[in-house]
């Protein structure tokens, strides 16, 4: 574990990539999270051994991502690595949050070609060639996006952990529906969860942002 010279992934040693690097998608990577822990019988043995196995993804390569208008070449990314992981842990864009790990809560929402997606459930390599916008990319020239402004004004946040996801989801929603009703807003942000309990404030903020945007703010 000290010596990395024997790494089966040579790219991770040198940090250099050959242009022809190709991914080999790891089954392990896809299956992880689906479980695999040895299941105990109802009448269980007194002794047991737990160890999940030895398979793992081994393919790595560089990924080129276009994020918030900038192009990043990110070396040594595993095929199984999610977009969320790369944004946070390679690019330090920590606005998108790891919360449920599996597309249930929307805390990791980013825009992919303008459409809201859960970045925890998209592989980094699959985001190549797409225009990625994170919450950090919404404000322009130091000015908050009208949705962000409205969230602050209406106190549509408490701890703030779900907030980036809601803000991005709301931006995408208002692009599709610039003049929504309250009911449509409720449905429009239903891909996201909050634990502090800010939903009704969020509805107010999204409605107010819609009005601001219609007026060209």
């Amino acid at each position: 574990m000290k010596e990395e010279k024997s790494d089966v992934r040579p790219e991770s040693l040198s940090g250099e990539e050959s242009p022809g690097d190709r991914f080999e998608i790891s089954r392990r990577g896809f299956l992880k999270g689906l479980g695999g822990t040895a299941v105990a019988a109802a009448v269980f043995p007194k002794a047991a051994v737990s160890q999940e196995g030895t398979l793992r993804g081994v393919s790595v390569g560089s990924v080129t991502l276009r994020v918030n208008g900038q192009t990043h070449v990110i070396p040594r990314v595993e095929a199984r690595t999610t977009l969320l992981d790369v944004l946070r842990n390679r690019l330090d864009l920590t606005g998108a949050k790891p919360i449920c790990e599996r597309a249930s809560c929307g805390g990791c929402t980013v825009l992919l070609d303008g459409k809201a997606v859960y970045s925890c459930s998209i592989l980094a390599m699959d985001a190549e060639g797409r225009e990625i916008t994170t919450v950090e990319g919404l404000a322009s020239n130091g000015r908050l996006h009208p949705v962000q402004e409205a969230f602050v004004e209406h106190d549509a946040l408490q701890c703030g952990f779900c907030t980036p996801g809601f803000v991005v989801a709301a931006v995408a929603f208002l692009q599709e529906n610039p003049n929504p009703t309250l009911e449509e807003v409720k449905q429009g942000v239903s891909g996201n969860l909050c634990r502090c309990g800010t939903y009704t404030r969020i509805f107010e903020a999204v409605l107010a942002a819609a009005e601001k945007m219609r007026k060209g703010a």
């Binding site: 864009l93 920590t94 606005g95 998108a96 949050k97 994170t134 919450v135 950090e136 919404l138 404000a139 908050l144 962000q148 969230f151 602050v152 004004e153 106190d155 946040l157 703030g160 952990f161 907030t163 980036p164 803000v167």
Partner: peptide, 16 residues
């Protein structure tokens, strides 16, 4: 009074 850290939270600048 709007939250003083509202802008940091809505822009993703707030570091947890």
């Amino acid at each position: 009074n709007p939250r003083l850290d509202g802008p940091a939270k809505v822009t993703g600048r707030a570091k947890y």
